[in-house]
Amino acid sequence: MESDLFISGIGGQGVQLIAKTLALAAIIEGRHVLLSGEYGGHMRGGSSVGTVVISPIPVRSLPILPDAGALIALTPLFWENVGPRLRRGALVLAEEAIVKDLPAMQEPRLVTVPATAIATGLGSRMAAGMVIVGAYGALTGIVSTESLVAAMKEQVPAYRRQHLETNEKAIWAGAGAVSPLAHPVAFARTLGALETGMVA
């Protein structure tokens, strides 16, 4: 069983940082991961898609995922890069402020969190990514909040230590903003019997 996830945002929103935080948190918990990025020209403002696969055994998924069972959406833009690649019943965790601009999706697979508002309340709008990664961890149970905090600390460079406290608060605030899913692994990929049904 492999849990595969796209993170879709605009370059500069911290998509790759969210992806790496999740990957490192999974490694802290002794699991295998694959982490790759798809960028639109390596620039601010372009499409940025992060891919994270978490597995109890060595990862078999491809470095370019044909589809995934979950999406963290930070932007409604570039939906064509990820929307058609979500498997049927996929989980979409979206920034609340963008939901009105997303294509119609069936509840209860769409979960929203006011990540930017929470981060702004904590004094750092830039920490929205940390809020949403905290929410994703708590929602799916895929990694613990403690592991996410440790993973965040592991990769923040020395010259950005001043952000540690806010980032940690943001992860916990995100975790507190959602209720855990009843069947969190329902959207994972079962290898050998791969689902082919896509949602538009």
Partner: peptide, 9 residues
């Protein structure tokens, strides 16, 4: 380049 740049545990 897929091998060079994909990160894995």
């Amino acid at each position: 380049n897929l091998l060079a740049r994909t990160q894995m545990a």
